[in-house]
Structures are given as C-alpha cells and as structure tokens.
C-alpha cells in the first residue's frame, strides 16, 4: 500500500491490579496523504489510546500484541513505529512526522511559559531552525491560523487567550513542524458551536494546503460528517464499521453505528423521539465474549454471544464487523 499510515491488527493490553485490560483489540486502519479519517466512539471505546499508540505515548504497563504493526511512510521511507527505541528515534513520531492537538488547549500549553517560547522550542528541536528563524515562522503560523496581532500574541501566556484563540494557537504550533500526520483528539469539543465552526473551517483549509493526513477523533457524528473523508466507528477497542463518510452515515451496516445516529437530536424532525443506545458501555475488565456489542444490541442472536464477527465488506470500501451485516454482492 502506498498509504501514509498503516496500522495492522493493533492490540494493546494494560496490566492493572485487577488483571489485564484490553483497550485496543485488533485495530486495522489506513490513512492516505491528504485524507481525513474520522474515528468515532463513546468514552471508553479506546480511540484516544489508539491515537497515543501511534506516538508511542502509552504508559509503562502497556503491552502490544504480537501481531501488531504500525508503519508510517514518508518520501518512500518506511518507519516501523513499534520498533523505535530511545527518545531520539521516537522523536520522529513525536513531533517530526506526527503532531497532535488535544481537546483542552489550556492543559496542553505550559501555563508559565509564553506561547511563543513553546513554539520556538519545538521548532528548534524538530526542524533544527535558529531562534530567529523559528520566531519568524511561529509568528507567520499564528497569522496563518487567523490570530490577530500575532507579534503581540507570541509573547503572551496561554491564559491570556480565549478558548478559540488557544485552539488556533495549538493548531499553529502542531502544524509549524510540517508533520505528515496530524492527530486531532476532540479538538473542538470544548469550544462553542460558532467557534467550533470556525476552527473546523480552518482545519479543512490547512489540510488542503499542507497535504497531510489527519486522524480526527471525536464523539460527534455531525462534526465527522462535516470534516472526514472516511470514518471508523470504534466500540470497546474494536473497529466495528469503517467506510466512506457518506455511506456510513446514510447506510450504516452495524447496529451500533445506527444506534449512535438515532441517539442524535435532529433539527429536521423535532417530533422524533430520541432513541438511546440501551445500557452502558461495559467495563473493559468485563469484556463480553462473542461480539463485544451484543450486550446492548437489540438484534443480538445466539451466535452473537459466542462467536466474534469477522469484518466483512458490505459495499466497496465499506466494511462492518457484524454477523447480520449484508455481504457485499461483489
């Protein structure tokens, strides 16, 4: 595959006092350059753990499964993410080729260091720029993301900026190293809708300009519909459905995806009853056998409790892991 990121069969287990907890279970993902892959799921579904695994930011008690593979391809050169050893080698996926923006920009900026200093530091580290060049580039990036008076903002602290401005600064910082892959973990969840719309527009514009791939993590299917090219739906560490955003949202093949869509309040039909997905997401310590979703699935049959479903193609490029999903004709 000539993709940018290839993840094959990623399995991640945490050793805890109460026993091993499987947070990610056989996840397979592909991202092409310039493509936005949306990753949706409830809290506890393992989406953030997956994202952190790409930068090897997992704690010491994390164990990768034997068959797990993660490869990042840049300019014909393949980086096997799991074989990287030592801080220097890891720097390739921690800021050089992969950048990350987080949900809460206040927690991501150091509070006692100016925004400019933090931007300059990482540019010196990852791109080997001189202090002066790094300063110029940082101010240019701040301007690029729509921050007024970038020169003055450069010398301010994170608390002096509003939530929207902070998230813009975060994006400027993440993109200034020119990463090939940007991981955006709920980047607009903490923002007001009008500001969210502005930040999403900005991100879409910058993908076009920089041509990087984006892994966009969110629990909001509306945000996915507005930004992603493809979407993967995650539940209890598994990808249960994956495909082009139009197909997945219009013709979901997995009952969980269907449930997420039905639970959303829709402005077009104010009389429609809101249908919750019944029950709660089970604790990762008590992962159900068979299909992980069977405890909450209205359509569950006997075989769902016993055998985990294979991922199958329901349509070209659209796959689902459900015993009841229709098989693709082709």
């Amino acid at each position: 595959m000539g993709g940018l990121l290839t993840v094959r069969d990623l399995t991640l287990t945490f050793g805890t006092d109460e026993g091993p907890v499987t947070a990610v279970d056989g996840v397979t993902l592909d991202i092409e350059p310039g493509e936005v892959l949306g990753l949706v799921g409830e809290s506890g579904s393992g989406k953030s753990v997956t994202a952190k695994a790409l930068m090897r930011l997992n704690p010491a008690n994390a164990r990768y499964g034997a068959g797990s593979r993660m490869t990042l391809t840049d300019a014909g050169q393949e980086i096997d993410i799991l074989s990287l050893k030592g801080a220097k080698a890891l720097r390739q996926v921690r800021g050089d080729k992969i950048s990350m923006i987080f949900q809460e920009p206040m927690a991501s900026f150091a509070p006692a260091i100016t925004i400019g200093k933090q931007m300059v530091e990482q540019l010196q580290l990852h791109r080997g720029l001189s202090r002066g060049d790094a300063r110029m580039l940082s101010i240019e990036m701040l301007e690029r993301v729509g921050i007024s008076e970038p020169g003055a903002r450069f010398d301010q602290y994170a608390f002096e900026l509003s939530g929207g401005m902070r998230q813009r600064a975060m994006i400027a910082m993440a993109l200034s190293t020119r990463p090939r892959l940007l991981i955006a973990d709920e980047p607009t969840t903490a923002l007001d809708v009008t500001i969210q719309a502005q930040v999403l527009d900005l991100m879409k514009e910058l993908v076009g300009e920089f041509g990087m791939g984006i892994l966009f993590i969110t629990h909001d299917l509306g945000v996915i519909a507005q930004t992603a090219d493809r979407v993967a739906v995650m539940y209890l560490g598994r990808i249960v459905e994956e495909g082009p955003v139009r197909d997945v949202i219009r013709r979901p093949a997995h009952p969980y995806t269907r449930g997420l869509i039905d639970a959303l309040p829709k402005l077009t039909d104010l009389d429609a009853a809101l249908t919750p997905v019944p029950g709660d997401i089970p604790s990762p310590l008590e992962r159900p056998g068979g299909c992980v979703f069977h405890t909450r699935c209205a359509l569950a049959e006997a075989r769902c409790r016993i055998a985990p479903p294979e991922t199958r193609l329901v349509r070209p490029r659209h796959s689902a892991a459900c015993h009841l999903a229709p098989e693709s004709a082709s």
């Binding site: 409830e42 809290s43 629990h219 909001d220 299917l221 449930g259 997420l260 639970a263 959303l264 309040p265 009853a273 809101l274 249908t275 919750p276 997905v277 709660d280 997401i281």
Partner: peptide, 11 residues
C-alpha cells in the same frame, strides 16, 4: 455525557 446516554437522560 456520550450521545448514546444523553438521549436516555433527556427522556
């Protein structure tokens, strides 16, 4: 709350 639970609490 997650959307799947949000609907339940609203109801």
């Amino acid at each position: 709350l997650d959307v799947s639970i949000q609907a339940d609490i609203l109801n």
